[in-house]
Amino acid sequence: MDFLNALVVFLNFVFIPAAAYGAQLALGALGVTLIYGILRFSNFAHGDTMAFGTATVILLTWGLQAIGITAGPLPTALIALPFGIALTALLVLGTDRAVYKFYRRQKAAPIILVMASVGVMFVMNGLTRLLIGVDEYRFDDGARFIMDVRTFREMTGLPEGLALRSTQALTLVVAVIVVVVLFWFLNRTKSGKAMRAYSDNEDLALLSGIDPERVVRLTWIIAAGLATIAGTLYGLDKSFKAFNYFQILLPIFAAAIVGGLGNPVGAIAGGFLVAFSEVAVTYPWVKVVGYLAPWYEPGGLMQLLGTEYKFAVSFVILIVVLLFRPTGLFRGKSV
């Protein structure tokens, strides 16, 4: 019984939140890794692309709600999402036209693209602020819980409760669908294979008749889609605040690098690794230990690090992985 209680506490406070957060990070890291693999630079504007995408989704959600359209038990944002993706993709493609294309034609060193992405980051940051401001918003509507604590207790008779918020379940479902579709696209379709070929060897791809500009456009569209989805899921799960999306850049980069930059499988693994470590290290384990080892009375909360230091966790994982496997867990650079 105590073991079951411990398990429920673990699932409720560690496993489920970490899985949802991990899925959000993984989607973000996938976008970063695709751009790194194909456009060959780390996109510092990715966090702000996520923020912009989410902001458009929120505005559209409000619009839909205003005219009385909702998705019933599901968040209205889900209806707004495809339109948000389209708008973000348009913005990102416009940015590529206006900024990156010039350097690509010149065969400019990738560091110049990194610099340019810092400029784009500023502009997108400003755009998002213009669009929606700097305040914190919650935009999840529909059913709040798939399973709430009381129902669970009544069902099982355990003193500990287990809650599954609908946004968490939604995050996992959407993430699985997106990842399956993305991998099917990259590994099974001609266009997806062309993207991987371009990432592997630009010249040979060109000589094989692959249109580089088409590959680049596809990449931006996919990255915009991933960023908007990741951002919206993160916002639904927690809340939307533009600055948080800038800060999430670190765990996302860490996830992408830990998994091996340029490697989509690695990005997903990295995302979950970072998320689970963050939650596990910052969670006070006293309750779980209390059930598992009732004879032991710990002095404190048994929390390894305060939640304020969750960024430190992604950083330490990053360092450890790089020290032992400099190319990341799944050898990097192979979209």
Binding site: R40, S42, A109, I111, V114, D200, E202, D203, L206, L261
Partner: peptide, 16 residues
């Protein structure tokens, strides 16, 4: 900055 693998990816870059 082209030595920094966390921001730039020079493998497979084209010349044509």
């Amino acid at each position: 900055g082209n030595r920094d693998a966390s921001v730039v990816n020079t493998k497979g870059m084209g010349t044509i």
